[in-house]
Amino acid sequence: MRTSFSAIALDLDGTLVDSYADAEACWGTWAASKGIAAAFDLAQHYGRRRTDIVRSLLPHLGEPEIAAEAEAVRLAERDRTGNTVALPGVAALLEALPDDRWAIVTSNDTEVATARLRGAGLPVPRVLVSADDVRHAKPHPEGFLLAAGLLGVDPAGALAVDDSPSGIRAARAAGMTTLAVMFRHDGATLAEADLIAEDLGRIEFEINDHSLVLRTPGADRGTPYGAQHSRG
């Protein structure tokens, strides 16, 4: 498996930040307003587009109504970031990465993604590919391919980090090496990834002028491992 990379493409929610409490509060309020709170579990929908969530829960609505409901939740999420925090190891890694070597690829929209990064005290990258920039959501590879193009790198030489099966499938379809981090999914669910870790705080990277080197002591494909982040 490749261990030296020209760039890294990172998912946002569940990979860089824990926004679950804020998202759950917004969706819970919405679900209560629609009389479906008892049957709603955000964990079953985490990482999906809002319109897809609304459509699955309220299939009787037409597309304009679905879009309006999704927008109401989006605005609530944009304005609620008080409980959004950076996940372990993330702040140190992003501080160490050169601006032209990393990107975020998220199924969220740009406004909410930016609000969550700022709420968590993390930098907004030069390349942020969101749902606003693509036609196809994960597991389609469009977002990761676009990020590689904007960074000016070959996808085959990039590392992708995501916490969802759909994100891992998208990155693999783009030709990237994949590292799954466990947030709302366990290792068995993320078994398609080249490597699995509990979070980015367990990973060791060596960063130099030409490459991002992933150190994987004792790691096997599909097996969680632990290490520390370091700057080379």
Score class of each variant (00 low, 15 high):
150 L>F: 14
25 A>G: 12
140 H>V: 04
116 R>M: 00
137 A>V: 08
80 R>I: 04
117 L>S: 10
116 R>F: 02
101 R>G: 11
34 K>P: 00
109 D>R: 07
72 A>N: 09
59 P>V: 05
50 R>S: 15
81 T>F: 00
50 R>A: 15
32 A>H: 07
41 D>Y: 12
54 V>D: 00
124 V>K: 04
94 L>W: 06
98 P>S: 11
142 E>T: 09
29 T>L: 14
97 L>V: 01
28 G>Y: 05
148 A>C: 13
59 P>L: 05
50 R>Q: 14
65 E>P: 08
77 E>Q: 05
11 D>Y: 11
142 E>H: 00
108 N>L: 10
130 S>A: 11
106 T>C: 12
94 L>T: 03
83 N>W: 14
137 A>M: 06
20 Y>G: 07
52 D>S: 13
84 T>H: 01
89 G>F: 08
147 A>R: 07
117 L>E: 01
101 R>D: 07
39 A>T: 15
90 V>C: 01
90 V>A: 06
113 A>Q: 08
102 W>V: 09
76 A>L: 09
24 E>V: 13
14 G>V: 01
112 V>F: 09
103 A>D: 06
87 L>H: 03
67 A>P: 10
58 L>Y: 01
106 T>F: 01
107 S>F: 01
101 R>H: 02
41 D>E: 11
40 F>K: 02
91 A>D: 04
88 P>L: 03
138 K>Q: 11
35 G>L: 05
140 H>D: 09
62 G>K: 11
32 A>W: 11
137 A>R: 03
94 L>F: 04
21 A>C: 13
62 G>R: 14
98 P>I: 02
143 G>V: 06
88 P>N: 10
58 L>D: 06
31 A>M: 03
92 A>T: 12
14 G>I: 04
115 A>C: 08
61 L>E: 05
138 K>Y: 06
101 R>W: 14
109 D>P: 12
79 D>S: 14
116 R>C: 03
64 P>H: 07
11 D>F: 03
27 W>I: 00
30 W>E: 02
28 G>I: 02
130 S>D: 04
88 P>D: 08
31 A>F: 08
53 I>H: 03
145 L>V: 12
35 G>V: 10
34 K>F: 13
144 F>I: 05
116 R>H: 02
137 A>P: 02
77 E>F: 08
103 A>S: 08
97 L>G: 02
